[in-house]
Write a protein that binds this DNA or RNA. Structure first.
Lengths: 295, 295
DNA sequence: GGGCTGCACTTTATCGACAAAGAACACAAA
DNA sequence: TTTGTGTTCTTTGTCGATAAAGTGCAGCCC
């Protein structure tokens, strides 16, 4: 089985949502933009839709015949790319299941467990190794270094350096920079979630990601921006399986974010640094606490 | 052709140097340690040496029959691992040959040019991508971001942050830490090279690498330590093909290093910071200058 | 003339296969 | 009782093959 056709399936599903009975789908190039795939894939989708009796397709006209029903969609798990599947399985294994430091990682075993070829696993591990959680012994196995307190501390130390630098750069952004607009949008989103915190506290993760990425972006430094990927993935998976005190933790963090955003808006470096430090040390504390309860 | 036997060939060559006529080679496990390979490889080497009439091998006795001659050695290029070959070729291409930013990188073409399979090239590119010089468009090609002034500045900005942090950590190392011994050894090596700078100035690169790695190590932070790999590879290849003013540049840098080392030995944070900043800004200047002459 | 379609072609993602390299274990020697 | 050897088995590194996905060009339609 070369290449899964997950790109096709995912785009097909998304394309189904564009169908409006009586109307015609837009041109092929336009669909490419809408779906973010190449024309070849768009044409496969159109062909398939003809087969399914969803549209009549003749040159420029792509008349919609009926609305899609549930059975028209591909099952969601078939739309995940291989690397996503591998990543999830792997993270589950090392963050939950026995992820003792020093453990050996076996490419073949992992591949069999997930049901994919060794090449895919290998490439995943290589990509993943930049996160500092695993290490390769050449001509031999990988070693799991483990999501330990030590790891968390090293990660957060660098994060603090970078975030302070980025936040400082943020205040010198010109007034017309789109980041200011986005910052205001984010502030509103925070306020909205806060207003209904008891039922929406889980949305914090997304806000957190957006805010911090926006700030790192201001550094204009690819190493700083790329580093945030490590933080994001670690926080993402860790808190996904570790929801103790999430309501309380997230509520507090949203308030800190709002202070941080206000500080950025004043453009006063000292105010920004203070708010930034406050939030970061609180985030550090939460992570370390959740680590000790987990262990 | 699965797996090149470069490990074997390289170990074989190194093993040839251990041969002393009249004596016997040590035990298999000991050879493993000496050569840094597994017993399987050691045994292949011994078999091969028997075939070549270099030794008589009977259980524990491995009596050396004759000294190796030049023809006994495998040619050096056959002892380089595939990834080394790929790395060199690739770096040559992007640092010297037309490495215009935005250029597309074609896995297949690269593989053919180097004469290896696509998998190896692919894995190299994935590993290399963490250096921030290339970027992947999923399901499509890689994009060369280019070794530009911009890149150099981003790299050096982070380097300065990390090195200052590491140097600060260095002064708080306990007196019995082996780093102090290594530091003194390095100081002597610097003095030696300096004494004969006109003929030995090219040895500076190695000293530079050793000193900075020693200092980063003190941070105890894997992200800081790993980041130094990026700096090392960039400086390595850049100055390897760019030797303008090398004599002068290296002489100056050695003096700065000696100041830096002295400062570390005083264990006074301010002195260290000053020496560190001085050296780093001078290194930055050299790199930026050599970039403008190259472009 | 500018955008759209049809078609042929290129490149990537993934697999299975296989030799090189590593690891495990029982037996032998000192 | 420790250390070394013989043997067997496992795992990694690399390749070529192939379907999926992307790209480029010639001609067509408004």
């Amino acid at each position: 089985m070369p290449k899964q056709n997950t790109v096709f399936k995912d785009a097909y599903n998304r394309c189904l949502r564009l169908l409006v009975v009586g109307e015609s789908l837009p041109s092929e190039p336009e669909l490419c933009n809408l779906l973010g795939v190449s024309r070849t894939t768009v044409r496969s989708i159109l062909s398939q839709m003809v087969e399914a009796g969803l549209i009549e397709w003749n040159k420029r006209s792509k008349a919609v015949q009926r609305s899609p029903v549930k059975a028209d969609f591909f099952p969601e798990h078939e739309t995940n790319s291989l690397s996503e599947v591998i990543e999830r399985t792997f993270m589950k294994r090392i963050l939950i299941g026995g992820g003792e430091p020093g453990m050996q990682i076996n490419e073949l075993e992992l591949a069999r467990e997930i049901g994919v070829g060794t090449t895919s696993v290998r490439e995943f591990l290589i990509r993943f190794s930049r996160f500092g959680l695993i290490e390769k012994r050449p001509n031999s196995h990988w070693v799991l270094k483990g999501f330990t307190r030590q790891f968390a501390e090293e990660l957060i130390d660098v994060r603090e350096m970078f975030e302070l630098k980025s936040a400082a750069a943020f205040v010198s952004l010109p007034a017309e920079d789109p980041a200011w607009v986005e910052l205001e949008a984010l502030r509103r989103a925070h306020v909205e979630v806060l207003a209904d915190i008891d039922s929406r506290y889980l949305e914090f993760s997304e806000l957190d990601d957006r805010l911090h990425r926006l700030i790192q972006q201001a550094s204009g430094n690819r190493f700083i921006i790329d580093f945030y990927d490590i933080i994001a993935i670690v926080f993402h998976y860790h808190y996904q399986w570790n929801k103790a005190n999430a309501r309380e933790r997230n509520g507090k963090a949203i308030l800190e974010h709002l202070d941080y955003i206000e500080a950025l808006k004043t453009r006063r470096p000292e105010a920004v640094e203070a708010a930034c430090r406050l939030h970061l040390s609180s985030a550090r504390l939460s992570l370390m606490q959740s680590l000790s309860t987990a262990a």
